[in-house]
Amino acid sequence: MDEIALHILDIAMNAVTAGARRLEIAVHEDHERDRLEVRVADDGKGMDAEQLRRVLEQFASDKSGRRHPIGLGLALLEQTAEACGGQMRVASRPGRGTEVAAWMRLSHVDRPPLGDLKDTVFALCVGAPDVDMALTYRRNGWTARFGSAAVRRELGPGQSLQSPVGLRAVRRALLGVPDS
C-alpha cells in the first residue's frame, strides 16, 4: 500500500464485511509530536483473541501458500507502522466490534504519504451506503469532519447516496477532507 489512505480503506473494508452499522475513522497529523495517528473503529461482528492472533501472525506463520487471506490488511498496516517507528494495536470483542489504532513517525523516511483520504471516504460511503460513516481529520489545530448520516438527512428519504444528486451531496460534504 503506497498511501495511508489505502491502508485505511483496507481496514475499513474489514469492518464493512464484518457487518458494521457504524464506522468511525480518525486521522491526526500531529507535527508537534511528530506523530501520524490513525484509528478505525466499528461495531461489526468482532474477533476473539485466537482469531485476532491468527490475523496478526500471518506474515510470521502463514507460509502455507494462502496468499491473500481475510484480514491481511491488518498485518500490512502493522508492518508499515512498525517500519515507521510506531506501532499498531487492535482491540476486538466478538459481537461488539473492532478498534484498530496505529501511529507512526510523521518524519520517518519510509512513511507513505497520507494520500487521497477524500476518495477513500467517498468509495466507502457510496459503496456501503447502509453503514453510518464518520471521519475526523485533524492536522495541528485544524479539524475537518464528515458524516454520511448528515448527508442522508440533507437528501431526505427516497434519495440514495448513489444517485447523481446523492453523489454530488457526498462530494460537497467532503470538500474539507484532504485528497493528497
Binding site: D10, H68, L72
Partner: peptide
C-alpha cells in the same frame, strides 16, 4: 472487489 489485493 475491494479487498487488499484489489485496493493495491
Amino acid at each position: 472487489s475491494m479487498g487488499t489485493s484489489g485496493i493495491a
